[in-house]
Amino acid sequence: MTENNSSSSSSSPPLQRVGAVSSEDLQRQLQRDQMLRWLILLGIPAASTIVLAWFKLTPDPLGFGIMIMAGTWMMLNFISARAWQQVSNMAELFAIDPEQAEARIAIVLKSKPLARQVRLLTWHRLATLRHQQKDFDQTIAVCQSVLIYPLRNVHAVRQHLLLMLTEAQLARGDAYGAYMSLSELSHQQLSLTHSLQKLALQTRYLLMVGYDEAALSDLPGKVKMAELMPTLQCGALHVLFYVAASRSGQTPQADWLNERSRLLLSEKQYDDILQSLSMPTVTPGELL
């Protein structure tokens, strides 16, 4: 699954890369981790207890064996914690040096045995990286692989995976998949940031399937939510609403939204967003 990057300069060692992955890879890794952990957790204390009892080194070999088991458990967790430190705060690295970030993920994925939660969270980081690289096929594959397994105490990660999955599905034109992901998201209690992201994705989905009226329902509330987003996303959402309003013939709203979006976005950004939607601005009634 991991491979070396041949394009790296000859002076520094080549950066490791994570190749294409599937749900089978994750399943195999989790099984291997579990097997190794049990082997170490039971094997080392058992061996120590036998040795201590054989040579009569302590009056209570069983108690000492259990203490060694506790120590082994802590050591295994320490290995996982060290691995997690490598990939925990990668947001900046994703933006600055994605290759370095990928190399780090590759190293962590190779280390074993990892705690199940750490393995799943490292895959989440991989999904984030692929999503930023706009490799939507791999994003879908990684997100779907991780979402099979329950993520205890990290609901935010599950929600983030669903959001990335929805966006990748929308980018691939998979309306049915996006609908399923969005409906799963709507059953969860989202943070404000995730709610805003969901609003943007939901609007894109509604426009994609032609539910312009639904996209415009509670428009003032949605616009207020959009204002909480960063400028570019706020402007992009205004463009989506503008397209919906102009297609459904709501000219005053369309004009107002268009005027706002032109203040929020530069000419190029505005054109790019329209182009990315593949939805040309239409005069009211043209598409009806």
Binding site: T58, D60, G63, F64, M67, G71
Partner: peptide, 20 residues
């Protein structure tokens, strides 16, 4: 934890056996 591990090695009575 290290102290507790050390105590198990030299446990002499009930107290030193339970304390770790």
């Amino acid at each position: 934890l290290l102290v507790a591990a050390g105590m198990t090695l030299f446990a002499q009575n009930a107290l030193t056996a339970i304390l770790p």
